[in-house]
Simulated scan of single mutants.
Amino acid sequence: MKVTEAERDSFYKVLFSRRDVRREFLPTPIPKEVLDRILLAAHHAPSVGFMQPWDFVVVSSKETKQKIKQGFQQANQQSADMFDGERKEKYQTLKLEGIEEAPIGICLTCDRSRTGDIVLGKTIKPEMDLYSAVCAAQNLWLAARAENIGVGWVSILLDDVLRENLAIPESLDIIGYFCLGYVEAFQDTPDLERHGWQSRREVKNSIHFEKWQK
């Protein structure tokens, strides 16, 4: 199947307009058919050995989101204390989640034992299953953006909070918790760049030819 120029341009539009959303969520429900398409896209991520190690726990309960938010608040204070001076002050001004505002939360897990002990492609780099699950996160994010739905990745959460509230077995690795919802607007610039935390590196500084260059 050949991709047309219009389809190519649409893909790049989605890619470059993807944002980590924290503050612009609307209470508008996500229709089931839309959420199903997003999850199907995530499920079609590439995976080493075709092991498909991911699972998705979909959260819509207000009570559950409140408990997860409490876990974030504890972890966020712990994180803030790791910074000093002006950096700490700046950190404390940032909004870093939309757990209660977003209509849907999704916890992405990785079952590292799926398909057995020896997996094609994991024989030398056993962490490839984790990378495969992260590919599912990227698919989810891009599919959501194509549906005009914002996504925020909440990494400032202790795994125990998610295990306790979502009944996630200890045998599974937790990749992340994602907030999904329609938004007021998608920002032109990433939040952390917009608020002076970190700027984007120029792509030329990330590319090396033939060998690593300083």
Results as ranks from 00 to 15, higher is better:
residue 12 Y to Q: 09
residue 14 V to W: 05
residue 14 V to N: 09
residue 14 V to G: 02
residue 15 L to G: 03
residue 21 V to M: 15
residue 21 V to C: 13
residue 23 R to N: 09
residue 23 R to G: 12
residue 24 E to Y: 14
residue 24 E to R: 13
residue 24 E to G: 03
residue 26 L to S: 15
residue 26 L to Q: 15
residue 27 P to V: 11
residue 27 P to W: 12
residue 28 T to N: 11
residue 29 P to A: 09
residue 29 P to C: 09
residue 30 I to V: 11
residue 30 I to L: 07
residue 30 I to T: 09
residue 31 P to N: 12
residue 31 P to G: 14
residue 32 K to V: 12
residue 33 E to T: 08
residue 34 V to T: 15
residue 35 L to G: 09
residue 36 D to L: 09
residue 36 D to P: 01
residue 37 R to F: 02
residue 37 R to E: 14
residue 38 I to A: 08
residue 38 I to F: 11
residue 38 I to W: 10
residue 39 L to W: 07
residue 40 L to Y: 10
residue 41 A to S: 14
residue 42 A to I: 07
residue 42 A to P: 07
residue 42 A to H: 07
residue 43 H to K: 07
residue 43 H to W: 01
residue 45 A to Y: 04
residue 45 A to V: 01
residue 46 P to S: 13
residue 46 P to F: 04
residue 46 P to R: 04
residue 47 S to P: 06
residue 47 S to N: 07
residue 48 V to P: 08
residue 48 V to K: 13
residue 49 G to V: 03
residue 50 F to D: 08
residue 50 F to P: 00
residue 50 F to Y: 10
residue 51 M to R: 15
residue 51 M to S: 14
residue 52 Q to H: 10
residue 52 Q to A: 09
residue 52 Q to S: 11
residue 54 W to I: 02
residue 55 D to R: 12
residue 55 D to A: 10
residue 57 V to D: 05
residue 57 V to L: 14
residue 58 V to Q: 04
residue 58 V to H: 04
residue 62 K to H: 06
residue 63 E to S: 05
residue 63 E to C: 00
residue 63 E to K: 07
residue 64 T to P: 00
residue 64 T to C: 05
residue 68 I to L: 03
residue 68 I to C: 00
residue 70 Q to D: 07
residue 72 F to W: 10
residue 72 F to V: 01
residue 76 N to I: 02
residue 76 N to Y: 08
residue 76 N to Q: 11
residue 76 N to T: 00
residue 79 S to A: 10
residue 79 S to K: 13
residue 80 A to Y: 06
residue 80 A to R: 08
residue 81 D to T: 05
residue 82 M to W: 09
residue 82 M to Q: 14
residue 83 F to A: 11
residue 85 G to M: 13
residue 86 E to H: 12
residue 86 E to Q: 15
residue 87 R to Y: 11
residue 88 K to Y: 05
residue 88 K to C: 07
residue 89 E to L: 08
residue 90 K to T: 04
residue 91 Y to H: 11
residue 91 Y to Q: 08
residue 93 T to E: 15
residue 95 K to C: 10
residue 96 L to E: 03
residue 96 L to N: 09
residue 97 E to N: 15
residue 98 G to Q: 10
residue 99 I to N: 07
residue 99 I to Q: 03
residue 100 E to D: 04
residue 100 E to W: 00
residue 101 E to K: 15
residue 101 E to R: 13
residue 101 E to W: 01
residue 101 E to N: 08
residue 102 A to V: 02
residue 104 I to H: 06
residue 107 C to Q: 01
residue 108 L to Y: 06
residue 108 L to M: 03
residue 109 T to C: 11
residue 110 C to L: 05
residue 111 D to L: 05
residue 111 D to G: 06
residue 112 R to E: 14
residue 113 S to I: 00
residue 113 S to M: 11
residue 113 S to Q: 15
residue 113 S to H: 15
residue 114 R to Y: 04
residue 115 T to N: 13
residue 116 G to K: 07
residue 116 G to V: 03
residue 117 D to V: 01
residue 118 I to N: 12
residue 118 I to P: 02
